[in-house]
Simulated assay, not measured.
Amino acid sequence: MPRMLDVSDDVRAEIGEDEAGRLLAGDGAPGSYDCTSCRTPGDSEQERTSTVLFVGEETAVLAFAHATCIPSQVVPVSEEQLQGAVRSITGADAGAPAAPAARTPAAEPAPAAPAPATERQATLGITCGLVLVEGDLRPALVVEPDGPIARPGSTSPHDDFLPLLREQGFSDVRDMNQLPAPNPGWSALLAMGQLHAVLQPGTTGNPSAWWQAHQPLAVSDGWRQAATKAKTVLMYAAPAGTIGRQPREDLMRQALEQAAAQGVLVAAVMPLAGT
């Protein structure tokens, strides 16, 4: 039976016209599926459905999502992330506990990112939480390294984390009740209901990973629903030791306000990349 599939030009270019035609005719496209964005059931025979192609270095995986959640598109990911997505699709990760916040070592940053010097390897921590801004609970990422961040190639003991981010378009936060400004080219990759990476503009025109989870991070249902609804995420960043691991979102908000008052908090609004 024909499917109500949206196949973007980018996806069509990757899979070819013949494969796109087979999908639209119902060959190889499931009738029912779990939306790769909101993780709720969908039916490509009854509702518009987006084809989402995750492309790694050696592997590509085609997934499906409600067209109302995200448009059809190609999502570049690392091969490691893609293998994790495959395990998620096949159910190998089923039953893993969800957590509203997580902290993992950062992948090696791109040259333009605030990379730690060899002598001072720092870990970038990501905490996911909901922040009340302009009357709405908004999904936020709070980034804080566990030590000073040096400019690439520098051996200076000075912490350049915030100056590097300001140079890349992040703005100082003066008032937590106001939305930060957008930072074009930056985005957050939420795929298979998990946070995979923060992407920055690449030198070749394609986005590259500024921060990348070694393992995709689970987020709370409330955070994911808010991100899917808004299609944007707020990213706040502060130097090491400023925010800390707060057990509750109200305490995280209080720490963010204190950082803003001290002039050591930058932020930006960024869209969701992929799902």
Rank of each mutant, 00 (worst) to 15 (best):
V11S: 01
G147R: 12
A101Y: 05
V264R: 12
R245H: 15
R253G: 07
G263L: 14
L130Y: 06
V143K: 00
A94N: 06
Q81D: 06
E134V: 02
G125F: 02
P180A: 05
G42V: 00
A13G: 15
T118H: 15
T49E: 01
A13K: 09
C35Q: 09
W186F: 10
L164A: 11
A60V: 09
G95Q: 07
D93N: 14
H158Q: 15
V52Q: 01
A92M: 12
P184E: 06
F161P: 05
A260P: 06
P2H: 00
V131S: 08
L217P: 00
L165G: 00
V77R: 02
G147H: 06
P100C: 11
R103I: 13
D10I: 01
Y33C: 11
W186Y: 09
P145R: 05
L217G: 02
R174D: 14
L217R: 08
D146W: 07
P116R: 03
A92D: 15
Q215S: 12
P184D: 13
R3N: 06
P201M: 07
V266Q: 08
A65D: 03
S37Q: 14
G202R: 12
V86T: 09
R12L: 10
V131E: 15
R103K: 14
Q178S: 07
T203F: 07
R248Y: 06
A260Q: 07
A92C: 08
A67G: 09
E47W: 06
A230H: 10
Y236A: 09
D221Q: 14
E47A: 15
D18F: 07
V269K: 15
P30W: 10
L24E: 11
I89V: 15
A150K: 07
Q215N: 07
P2Q: 06
T68K: 13
A65Y: 00
G193V: 04
A255K: 10
L23C: 06
V219M: 13
